[in-house]
Each structure stands twice: as structure tokens, then as C-alpha cells.
Design a protein around this nucleic acid. Structure first.
Length: 692
RNA sequence: GGAUGCUUAGCUCAGUUGGUUAGAGCACCUCGUUUACACCGAGGGGGUCGAGGGUUCGAAUCCUUCAGCAUCCACCA
């Protein structure tokens, strides 16, 4: 079995090397042919490529091979994303196993380890890509921490800075105490928890809270202005027992308070709650930090200082009861925000972070998207993206990490400078790095040498084709659009293809923690690369999720492996066992007409489906034609008149191979090479029909 | 709470702008070991297209209500 696997992979590697050697995959920017450009979404540098990557890359590859056959000068540009938090988390886990840690290594040594780890991951990426036959121009590969993106990132930062779009300030952020960094809304997930809702007496009022431990940070009580019950209290001040002393608190009226929740009164904790932060801003309330970045209470919490949030909650409850402050408890089921990566409960708290004002940037992007310059698949993503951009928040671009583009701001005494390199002795660079998406958002430009003016950029931008998983439509796609429009006035890509998500049979995402993943390598070694690719095209409908299990993918893999065998047998019959005669290339009218008409029909349909990016339909047609029309019917009938039919047999086979090549590149090349009259590679053949 | 999508044969899914007996693969049944192929061929069974209502000469396809599932967004004091 393992021998067999190696043999299969060896065969595919040989063909791939042949394509590379003949420069069939490389892009000639001096070429005169019309360009078709595809930008590979850079996978995260975190380990191995999974089935979702395979799906996405295989879709891109079929499009790029199709365009190659049509005679385009194709650029499929590959790359990898440094993936700040994710990579850093993965590496730290690995280092812990080796008995090392961030603290013991220090920033410089740690970065050395990081680059070493990067090399390991790179090797595995390249192997997988080539095994899948991805026809990218590897000489143009980009990594988001390379020099070029570095220049682009700096240009971007400087441009925003000069325009006054970047600001630094205390701001309430979602803080993950374990990752020790601010994270964005989109990096969180929600877990339903059964907790308690506590009713506390604050002066003459009773209010409900799920987080009594934040009471040390309270700066006011708030009610809805329309709530008649509390009208008389608004504006008054009361002495409140905080368990760490006593302080005066005012009752304020704010629209954000829901009169139907609890008693209709809330405590306002601007330092540790998003709504409260907004209320606090509107009413000029002070911000008090009672939870620190490790998720522990600060000294303001008196004897509870140093406790973790949940410990503190448990310790506080009895005290509140004793003091007569806690008057009622009830069960309360609600969603708790946790960090998407480490599942730690996220604490909203105040941190010094860098932000980009997004309002104006988004406005321009909305205009461009509304002009329908980008073809979204599925269509409704246009609306979804516009709605998001309409309600955009400022972008928190700083992360307290080491892996990434360091914020290019330098400090000396009370001076500040923006520079890529140190402005001289005594200057200290900001400790934080930029959000990964700050560089990924520039991907369509930085991969082409932007911001330096150059021919490549001028020729290629905007890209013809981009593909993505829908889950990063805001994080990545929307940002690429906004940044491209902002800096170049142009959209970044003409077609934006959102593929569906592969899920398990329960509809869950594949994830490491669930252990429900299916290795692409497993499928390849069982059924071959081409069959695995074909199995994946079944799930290439834009925006449609697919449920898969090992057995379902095995079923498809086996089915297409059988299809590959069928094609091998067909070609053996036609090319190896052909009758002894000299083909004159003439087609006999009459008995061959129908298959020629079917072939014509097939060519037209496959072309249409590829143009519309309906890959699954193209695959269906090819399968039906080759197996059930050509093999089962025509070849069977031709046995009666083999010599006469031979030119047609050869012709139909060759054309079928060309049409199938975008999907099964290795098999089609292998068989193509057995023809007597042929070009150097099937990739140099002509697609039978032009696109509309 | 808001938005979007999904619900078609036992399973996983296709069904292009509404138009003849609703398709594929796998599974199942019958027959076939003819010199490309049993990783095969010929044939067959199996669906009131989630439920109700509506538009139409005609609806899986359009409208509406409802149910279930999923995703995204918001809220979560």
C-alpha cells in the first residue's frame, strides 16, 4: 500500500517538475498575450494545509489552467500570511514542549526561533501545493513579512498618519488575558453559559447585574429616560457601599438602558463594559480600571485585589449578602464572549491601542462596490459587505505580539517620529506590532511591488480573480477593497468568489479542537490527486457549505478514481490497441456525426460553465460525456468499424482531455503524451471554443 | 433581536431564465465473465421536491405564512 502511494506521488511529482522545467506555469510580464491574473489567498502560517485550503486552491487552479488553454498569459501568484496571533500561539505551544518560553528567550531569540519554524511550515506547504498540481509561479511567491510588504505596510501607516487617520488612545478593547493582547470582535466567539443574575441594592434603587465583581469600577447608576418609575431619582446622588469603602454615585438617564431588563436600573462600569463605556463618554464619567490585563482585580478592589475574576465573584457574593446589598439571585442563561483561539473568557478593559479612523475610507469603498465593478459570487455578498461598511467601527490595528510588522513609531524624550528604521541613537521603537490584516489588506497591491511604481503593477492590477472563505469577508475582503480604493482609486479584483465551508456531518466547522478534520494527504494517497480534486469540485458552488465525512469523501474519491481508470482504459483501447493503418485524419460523415455533435455541445457547455465559475456543472458534463456517451456508446459501436472510426476516436479523446485538463491535470497530461501528433504539453493546446 | 442561506430518492447532493414521465454518485435488486475496462456493461426499484396558503394554462423553481437547521451581525448590565 505505502509503495503504491509513493509511486502515485512520484508520478505526479515528475509531471509537475516537467511543467516547471518547461516554464509552463510561469508568468512572462513582457509577454504580449492578454493577461489573466489570480491572487492566491495566503494561507496562515500555522502548520498544515487542510481540506478547505485544498478546495480553494484547486478551484483557483482549474480557472488558471482553463485560461492558460485559452491562450492567456496567466499569473497565479502564491504567498503565505504570517498570521500574528495564530502563529505566535502555535509556536509558543511548541516552545513550551521544548522547555523554552518567551520570557526566557527574549524578543530577539524568540524571533530567530520563529523564522526557523517558518521554514518548517513552508516546506510542508510547498509539498502539498505541488502535489495538488497548483499551477502557480513560485518565483513570485510573497510572504507578508517580506521586504516588499514591509515597504507597503510602512507606506500605508505613514499615509494614514500624515492624514491624521491614526490615533492612539485609551480605549475599551476586548482583551484576552491568556493571549495577552487586544482582539477584535471578529476574533471572538460566544458560548452559552448558565450563570446568576444578582439583584443589588444601590442606595434606594435595586439593580440587576451578572458581574458583581466589577462593582469597584462603578461610577454611576443609569435608567432609561422614559422610565417613569425612576424619574425622580435622575440627577440625584447617593452614598454607595462598595465593600472597599463608600462613594457617591449619581443616577443618570441614558437611552441605552433597557427598562425591561432586570429592574430597569444598571450600574455603569465604563472601564469594563462596552455599553457602559459609551454611556460614560456621553455623561463624562470617570473610567476606573478594576481588572488588569492578567484578568485579576486591581488594588482598587481592596481585599479582593489579585483575585481572578471568577474567584472574586465567589468571594464577593457572601459579603454582599452579609451587608444586605444582595437581595435576590436568579438563574441567568446568556452568552459569554471567549477568545476564538484559546477559549478564554474575554475581558473588556481599557488599554492604550492604535486605531485607524475608517469612516471616510469605507465611504469611498461603498461607492465603488455600488457601481458593481466587482462581480461577487454569490451575488448577495455585495449587499452584506456594504451593510458592514455602512456601520464600520474604527480599526484597532495594534497587537501586543512579537510576530508581525512592528509599529513604525519611535520615541525619544517627548518626541515621536514615524520611520521604518531607527532615526538614530536614543530612539526607542513602539513595542507593539500591527494587526495581521493591516498587511493582508494590502495583499493585492503589495504582491505586485506597490507602492513602488512598476510595470508589473500597472499591467496586472486589478486582479481578475480572487477567492476566499466567507468567514473572513470582513476581516480580509472588505479591507482589501477599502484599502485598494483608498490608495489606488481602483477595485482590487474583478471577480470575488466565496466558496462554501466544508463541515462535518453535524454541520460543525472543522477544527483542531474538535478533531474532526480530514487530511488531504489521506485522500490523495487513497485515490490519487486528480480524483481528490474531482471530489472537491463537487463542493465548489459559491457560498454553499458542504457536509463531508471520511466515508463520503472516500465514496467520491473512489468514484473519480474509477473515472480515471476508465479514461486510462479508453486511451489504451484507442492509442495502444489501434489497428495497423495510417490515419489520414478524415472523418466519415454519417455514423460519426452524433458523437461530433455531442463533443461540440460538451465544449460549449464546459466553456460556459467555466466562464460562469460553475465548476461542478462542468465536471458533471465531462463525466457524463466521457463515460456514458463516448465510452459506453460510441466506442462500443465503433468496434464494428474500427479502422474507419479511428480518426474520430483519437480526435474525441484528445479534445476530451483538453476539456478535462483544468480539473484532472496529471492524468490528462500523462495520456496526452501518448499521442503521436502532439505539442510538448497539453497546456500548450488550444481550448476549442472562445469565451463569450 | 436583525440579515442571509438551506430543507429534493436510504445517504451526499445537482437541478441554468417556471414548461413534456424530477436527475447524478453511492447503496439496493436482476442479468451478463463478448478480445479497453468487474475500479466493468445492460436493465430495474425507490421521491405527493420541509408544512400550509397563493399567483399561473402550468411551480422543486415566483409570492406569503409557519417549522426545523446553519451562518453572519447585534445584544448579553
Amino acid at each position: 500500500m505505502t509503495m503504491n502511494v509513493k509511486k502515485i506521488l512520484k508520478y505526479e511529482k515528475d509531471i509537475y517538475s516537467f511543467w516547471e522545467k518547461e516554464k509552463l506555469l510561469s508568468f512572462d510580464e513582457k509577454g504580449l498575450r492578454k493577461i489573466y491574473s489570480l491572487l492566491m489567498p495566503p494561507p496562515n502560517l500555522t502548520g498544515e494545509l487542510h481540506l478547505g485550503h485544498a478546495l480553494q486552491h484547486v478551484i483557483m487552479d482549474s480557472v488558471s489552467r482553463y485560461r492558460r488553454l485559452q491562450g492567456f498569459e496567466v499569473l497565479l501568484l502564491p504567498g503565505v500570511d504570517h498570521a500574528g496571533i495564530q502563529f505566535e500561539g502555535t509556536l509558543d505551544k511548541k516552545l513550551t514542549k521544548d522547555g523554552k518560553s518567551k520570557r526566557s528567550l527574549g524578543r530577539e531569540k524568540w524571533l530567530e526561533e520563529a523564522w526557523k519554524f517558518r521554514e518548517e511550515i513552508y516546506k510542508s506547504f510547498h509539498e502539498t501545493w505541488k502535489v495538488f498540481g497548483i499551477s502557480a509561479d513560485w518565483s513570485r511567491e510573497v510572504f507578508t513579512l517580506d521586504d516588499r510588504p514591509k515597504q507597503a505596510v510602512f507606506y500605508q501607516f505613514k499615509a494614514f498618519w500624515d492624514k491624521g487617520l491614526i490615533y492612539k488612545g485609551p480605549y475599551i478593547v476586548q482583551w484576552c488575558p491568556k493571549c495577552n493582547t487586544a482582539i477584535e470582535d471578529v476574533e471572538m466567539e460566544y458560548q452559552e453559559r448558565k450563570e446568576k443574575l444578582y439583584y443589588l441594592k444601590y442606595g434606594p434603587l435595586t439593580l440587576a447585574t451578572a458581574r458583581p465583581e466589577t462593582k469597584f469600577g462603578d461610577t454611576a447608576m443609569a435608567v432609561n429616560p422614559k422610565d417613569k418609575r425612576y424619574k425622580e431619582y435622575v440627577g440625584q446622588e447617593f452614598e454607595i457601599n462598595t465593600l472597599a469603602g463608600s462613594k457617591k454615585m449619581r443616577v443618570i438617564a441614558d437611552e441605552a438602558v433597557d427598562p425591561n431588563f432586570g429592574t430597569g436600573v444598571i450600574k455603569v462600569t465604563p472601564g469594563h463594559d462596552f455599553t457602559d463605556y459609551e454611556i460614560g463618554k456621553r455623561h463624562n464619567l470617570p473610567i476606573i480600571q478594576v481588572i488588569n490585563k492578567e484578568g485579576r482585580l486591581t488594588e482598587l478592589a481592596g481585599k479582593f485585589a489579585g483575585m481572578k475574576v471568577l474567584e472574586a465573584r465567589e468571594a464577593i457574593i457572601p459579603e454582599l449578602k452579609m451587608e444586605g446589598i444582595l437581595v435576590k439571585e436568579e438563574d441567568y442563561i446568556h452568552n459569554v464572549s471567549v477568545c476564538e483561539r484559546c477559549k478564554t473568557v474575554v475581558e473588556p478593559l481599557i488599554s492604550e491601542e492604535w486605531f485607524v479612523k475608517m469612516g471616510d475610507i469605507a465611504k469611498e469603498a461603498i461607492k465603488a462596490v455600488n457601481k458593481d465593478l466587482i462581480n461577487f459570487l454569490p451575488k448577495n455578498y455585495k449587499k452584506i459587505l456594504i451593510e458592514w461598511m455602512n456601520e464600520i467601527h474604527d480599526w484597532c490595528i495594534s497587537r501586543s505580539l512579537w510576530w508581525g510588522h512592528r509599529i513604525p513609531v519611535w520615541y525619544k524624550d517627548n518626541e515621536k517620529k514615524v520611520a521604518l528604521e531607527s532615526p538614530g541613537a536614543g530612539w526607542k521603537q513602539d513595542e507593539q506590532v500591527l494587526d495581521t490584516w493591516f498587511s493582508s489588506g494590502l495583499w493585492p497591491m503589495s504582491t505586485l511591488g506597490w507602492p513602488n511604481k512598476n510595470e508589473l503593477f500597472a499591467k496586472v492590477f486589478p486582479w481578475d480573480f480572487e477567492i476566499s472563505a466567507p468567514e473572513i469577508k470582513y476581516l480580509w475582503i472588505a479591507r482589501m477593497i477599502m484599502l485598494s480604493i483608498y490608495f489606488t482609486g481602483k477595485i482590487p479584483f474583478k471577480t470575488m468568489f466565496f466558496h462554501g465551508m466544508l463541515r462535518d456531518m453535524e454541520g460543525r466547522k472543522f477544527s483542531k479542537s474538535l478533531g474532526n478534520g480530514i487530511e488531504p494527504q489521506y485522500l490523495i494517497s487513497s485515490w490519487g490527486v486528480d480524483a481528490t480534486r474531482m471530489a472537491l469540485y463537487t463542493y465548489s458552488i459559491p457560498g454553499r457549505d458542504g457536509r463531508v465525512s471520511k466515508s463520503i469523501l472516500d465514496e467520491r474519491g473512489k468514484n473519480f478514481r474509477n473515472f480515471a481508470t476508465k479514461i486510462r482504459n479508453v486511451s489504451r483501447f484507442i492509442l495502444e490497441l489501434k489497428p495497423d493503418f495510417s490515419p489520414n485524419g478524415d472523418f466519415k460523415a454519417g455514423e460519426d456525426d452524433w458523437i461530433m455533435a455531442e463533443l461540440e455541445n460538451l465544449s460549449r457547455k464546459v466553456t460556459k460553465y467555466l466562464d460562469n465559475l460553475e465548476l461542478h456543472l462542468a465536471v458533471d458534463e465531462l463525466y457524463e460525456f466521457i463515460w456514458h456517451k463516448f465510452a459506453d456508446k460510441y466506442i462500443e459501436e465503433s468496434k464494428e468499424r474500427r479502422v474507419e472510426a479511428q480518426p474520430t476516436l483519437e480526435y474525441v479523446l484528445k479534445q476530451s482531455l483538453i476539456l478535462l485538463h483544468p480539473f484532472m491535470p496529471f492524468l490528462t497530461e500523462e495520456i496526452y503524451q501518448q499521442f503521436e501528433v502532439k505539442k510538448k504539453s497539453i497546456l500548450l493546446e488550444d481550448w476549442p471554443i472562445a469565451s463569450k
